[in-house]
Design a protein around this nucleic acid. Structure first.
Lengths: 99, 99
DNA sequence: TAGATAATTAGACAAATGTCTAAATAACAG
DNA sequence: CTGTTATTTAGACATTTGTCTAATTATCTA
């Protein structure tokens, strides 16, 4: 899960994923949305690809990036397990009612 | 969400959260589980606290750390929205059956 | 009060990260 | 073929991050 958390630990990359929700985009179309050079964009896309969050397909001169959310499953279940397995160590907030 | 992703982007800190699922622990008890100096542990716990993932309460000489999963909600819903809003741009994998 | 224990703060340092410019690769259009 | 467009690769550089040692603060106890 390390690569996954690393990939998501950047606002630019998270925004890229948000953009891709509406549909596939080429590297250039993605770059147009950010105030950043194309090599930087390329590097971010590479990290997302390494994490498995996007797939890339060359189409002629362009490279089309597609969102791939399957890798999120592991992270999602890890996070959700926290919402279920909470342990209550603190004292109860009130005394139980006396009969 | 930046602090939250940052806090989770470290195996040691994620392991700390896993430890706290079984119940509250003091800083020293947490430190015992890692091959790392106490100042380093203290720093990690500070980041978790800044992210809101743990609460700390001083009890005499000790400091007791408690898991707090409420901040996970925002992240969880962001992640889950990906599993719902996927768009299918690619061609269908097979041709539809011919009658 | 003196000494021991729990934990943090302060500061140093190497490694990782995000960004840039310059150059390389690959595909298209004339 | 030549030039233009899309994208990546390579390398440099400043910032952030994780770790350590040394010192500090706070609490307990004899």
């Amino acid at each position: 899960m390390n690569m996954l958390f690393k990939a998501l630990n950047d606002p630019t990359r998270r925004q890229m994923l948000d953009l891709l929700r509406a549909g596939d985009l080429t590297a250039g179309e993605i770059a147009d949305q950010f105030a950043m050079t194309k090599p930087s964009i390329s590097h971010h896309l590479d990290l997302l690809r390494q994490a498995g969050l996007v797939d890339s397909v060359k189409e002629g001169q362009f490279i089309r990036y597609t969102l791939n959310t399957t890798v999120l499953d592991e992270m999602l279940s890890w996070l959700m397990s926290f919402k279920g397995s909470a342990v209550h160590n603190s004292s109860p907030p009130v005394d139980p009612p006396q009969p």
